[in-house]
Structure formats: C-alpha cells, structure tokens
C-alpha cells in the first residue's frame, strides 16, 4: 500500500459513503416492509421521520460520490511518478486489475444516486409519499454497487506497490516487467467519430425539444440521453481530447481535468453527468404521471428535467465545438499507429 494523503482521503470517502448507504438501506428495508400510510401506528410515524434522514444522507452521498469520482482520477494522476511506464492517470489505473472497474462503478453509482434524488424530489411533492416503495427498491438496488465499489477501491489502493530503488540495482531489472504499463487508450478513429457525435447529438437535442414542446417521445429521449452519454465518453477519448491537447496521438480522457488544461475537463464532465442524470430522470418519472397526488406537478417537472438535460447537452456540444474551433490542431487525415 502507498501511504499517500490523497489515498487516505479516497479510502475515507469510500468508507464513509458506503457506511451512510448501509445505514440508509437498513431503514429503507424497514420502510419497504412496514410502510402503511393509512396506519397511525408508532412505527409508521418513526418511519415517516426516517425518510427525512435518508434523503439527507443520500444527498450527501450523492455529492460525495461526485467529488470522490474526481478525487479518484486526481489521485491516480498524482501517483503516476511511482510506477514505471505510467504517464498519467490512464497508466496508474492500469497498475492492477481493480483500477478501471472501480472507475466504471463510480460513474455508474453516481448516475444511479442522481436518479434516486430525482425520484425523491418527485415523491416529496405528493402529500401521500406515492413513490416511496419504488424509491427504496431503487436504493436497495444501488447499495450493493456502492459497497462493491468500496471493496474494489480498497483492493486497488492496497495492492499498489511503488517501483522504488532496490539494493542490487534499479527495480527495473529485478522485477522483470515485460513492458511498461500500457498507458495508451484504444480509441475510435477521430473523423468518423466526429460525424457520429454531431449527428447523434443533433438527433438527441431535437428529440428532447420535441418532447419538451409536445410531451411525446419521453422514453425515447431517456434512451437517447443514455446513449448520448456513452457516445460522448467515447468521443472524448476519440477526438475531443485530441483537440484539447492539440496532439493527434494523445487520447487520454483524464488529463483534461488537470491544471495544464485549465481544468476544462471538470466543466465537460459535469455538464455530461448533469445531462445524463436529468435525461434518465425523464424516463424514470414518466410511468408515474398518472399517480393521483402527483398529476398536478409531475408533468411540469418532467418537462423541466428534459429542458435541463437538453440545455446541458447543448452547452456540452457548444463547449466541445469551441474547443475544436479554437484549437490549433487540424485533423486532415487519420494518424495510424
């Protein structure tokens, strides 16, 4: 293990986060089993109060999850000098088998936690907690992922061994590494990907606007926004990063959040995460439009969500286009290597 202050902070955040989720799930299960809004039983009153606690807890977890996602990448990047062959976070995450799975789980659980908050907000608008059971089912679904993420993250950091000088010679020759860690990231060819990105984005935005105006095609928009999220991630690796680094061979999706590129990556990723959470929120809430106590407000809220998602995607696209136009890199032909 590497006893680095930032590693300690990461692990602390992971343990605190899963501790809070476990606590929330404990009461969530009780709510699932004993919830009865008609009853005036003491247990029901206690549970009603606990819902406040759980939603507060989960908003903290949600914030913590977002912060720790970035902290995780930051940590991976700052540990780079300790490993032979690692050039940036991409290489460090590859040091053992747990780095990338943790990252994927972090993103996944962040999106799920965001969806939970959307559901929670809608639920709080109704006087009779109409979505309470669904909400806590979703929570019970999220919890194992967050716990698994904590386990993987601990394994990742605890398995790390820095390549330091050994007493016979440099560590390079003692540990018989085959080659350095592959810090190259496989990527899609840039130019076709650019076409895909822009056409998919215009489709998604059109669908979103159509839904906002006419109220039709909500599920399609939710699906498209998820698809668009994945397409955008691939695009960042494939061509957006190239324009930001102004280097036709550097595909790293992590270096853009570093100081050298004026932290532009934070803005890009925040827009993207915000867009996908609100876009998926549309799909998550649509089935409940007919619920009696929510009828009055839910339609408006869903439309607002869709609008927010469309605006965030549009802002993302605008930012990306600005980066491409203002970059001094010109991709005339594909670099094959």
């Amino acid at each position: 293990m590497i006893l680095h202050p930032t590693v300690i902070a990461n692990l602390l955040a992971a343990y605190i986060g899963s501790g809070m989720v476990l606590y929330a799930v404990f009461y969530g299960v009780q709510i699932l089993r004993h919830w009865d809004i008609q009853s005036g039983h003491e247990l029901q009153l206690v549970l009603e109060r606990k819902t406040y606690l759980i939603s507060t807890l989960l908003s903290y977890v949600f914030g913590l999850q977002l912060l720790s996602l970035f902290l995780y990448i930051f940590t991976a990047d700052s540990l780079t000098p300790l490993f032979v062959g690692a050039m940036c976070a991409a290489g460090t995450l590859n040091v053992d088998g747990f780095g990338y799975p943790t990252l994927v789980l972090k993103i996944f659980s962040f999106i799920l936690a965001g969806l939970w908050l959307v559901l929670n907000y809608a639920d709080n608008q109704g006087y009779d907690y109409p979505l309470i059971k669904k909400k806590y089912l979703l929570l019970a679904f999220i919890a194992p992922f967050i716990i698994l993420e904590t386990i993987l993250e601990s394994a990742y950091f605890l398995n790390m061994e820095a390549d330091v000088i050994t007493s016979c010679c440099g560590s390079l020759f003692s540990s018989e590494r085959v080659t350095g860690i592959g810090s190259e990231i496989a990527s899609m060819p840039a130019l076709p990907m650019m076409w895909i990105f822009y056409s998919a984005m215009s489709g998604t935005l059109l669908c979103g606007i159509f839904f906002y105006l006419k109220g039709l095609g909500g599920y399609l928009y939710a699906a498209l926004s998820l698809l668009m999220f994945l397409v955008s991630l691939v695009s960042i690796v494939s061509f957006i990063s190239l324009y930001i680094y102004e280097l036709p061979t550097h595909h790293c999706p992590f270096c853009i959040i570093m100081e050298d590129y004026s932290y532009i990556g934070y803005l890009l990723y925040m827009l993207l995460f915000g867009a996908v959470v609100s876009g998926l929120g549309v799909g998550a809430l649509l089935p409940f439009r007919q619920v009696e106590s929510l009828q009055a407000m839910l339609g408006g809220f869903i439309r607002k969500l869709a609008l927010a998602s469309v605006i965030l995607y549009a802002a993302f696209t605008a930012l990306v286009s600005y980066e491409i136009v203002s970059s001094s890199l010109v991709i005339a032909y594909e670099v094959v290597y």
């Binding site: 590497i2 006893l3 680095h4 202050p5 590693v7 300690i8 000098p81 300790l82 032979v84 820095a162 390549d163 330091v164 000088i165 016979c168 010679c169 440099g170 560590s171 390079l172």
Partner: peptide, 28 residues
Amino acid sequence: RPIIRDEILRTYDSIFNWRGGMMIVIFS
C-alpha cells in the same frame, strides 16, 4: 549498479508520501 534518475525521483516521492501519510495517520 546503474541507478536511473526516474528511480531516484520515484523513491524520493515515495519517502515523502510516506512521511506525509504517516503524519496524517497520527493526526487521524
């Protein structure tokens, strides 16, 4: 015994990381 500059850098980095981490563990 050849020693590469990167290895020296890496070792120093580890030592200072360790010292800093140790202090934080103590202060925890």
